[in-house]
């Protein structure tokens, strides 16, 4: 009987495997950012204008910020399975990361909207704008200015947290790296590749966000 060792060296086909992991990370981060940001903007706006919504959603935001992402992923996975959604790991990841993103984005949006001076809003109203016009043409552009840099910080956190989606069976970059490490024992080469991948995404973006922050403050 032929016996083959499981411990094989790196092959070129593994580059394809890693590229797939890379693409999966990008896909998950993009989907969760999109879902979380849109939900977060609505939630943040509602929390600014309505006291009832602010009190009702406070526990949601508080809990999502005080429970580790890895636990949130596992809970999303098992809850959706219990409810009978036979969804793919991609959706479990999107739901968990998107929910977190919506909670933290809501706080950033709220802080942005609150930073708009009341006089600006009153003058807009006295010029004859209605509430929605004021929101659309006065408050939102000003809030965008203050909220952009913190929001970029949140997206970076989300990209880094997406490395945990491996625990619910989603093969993103970190997970594919780990699978290859287990098989080939090329630990350093693969780990450096993973570190470099995240660093090359996050470092330029965080530099740019610091630049933005300085520009907004002046």
């Amino acid at each position: 009987m032929q016996f083959q060792f499981a411990n094989q060296g790196l092959a070129w086909s593994d580059a394809y495997f890693l590229a797939q992991g890379l693409l999966n990370t990008v896909r998950l981060a993009a989907a969760a950012t999109l879902v979380g940001t849109l939900a977060g903007i609505v939630l943040g706006w509602l929390r600014t204008v309505s006291v009832t919504v602010r009190i009702a959603t406070a526990p949601f935001i508080d809990i999502l910020r005080s429970v580790p992402m890895i636990i949130q992923l596992i809970l999303a996975n098992s809850l959706l399975s219990i409810l009978g959604f036979g969804a793919s790991p991609f959706w479990f990841g999107t739901v968990a990361l998107g929910a977190w993103m919506s909670a933290v984005t809501a706080e950033v949006v709220r802080a942005g909207l609150l930073s708009v001076p009341a006089q600006y809003r009153r003058s807009a109203r006295s010029l004859g704008m209605n509430g929605y016009q004021e929101l659309l043409y006065i408050s939102m552009p000003l809030a965008f200015r203050t909220a952009l840099a913190p929001w970029i910080g949140l997206v970076l956190s989300l990209i880094k947290d997406s490395a945990l989606a491996g625990v619910v069976g989603y093969i993103e970059y970190m997970r594919s790296t780990q699978i290859l490490i287990t098989r080939t024992h090329e630990t350093w080469l693969l780990l450096m590749g993973a570190g470099l991948f995240y660093f090359l995404i996050c470092y330029p973006v965080s530099r740019y966000s610091r630049h933005l922050e300085r520009k907004v403050r002046v």
Binding site: L156, K160, D161, A163, L164, M174, Q178, L191, A194, G195, Y198, F199, C202, Y203, S206
Partner: peptide, 11 residues
């Protein structure tokens, strides 16, 4: 600050 915490742990 620019790499995932899980990467740092694996390192």
């Amino acid at each position: 600050r620019n790499t995932p915490a899980v990467f740092q742990l694996y390192l």
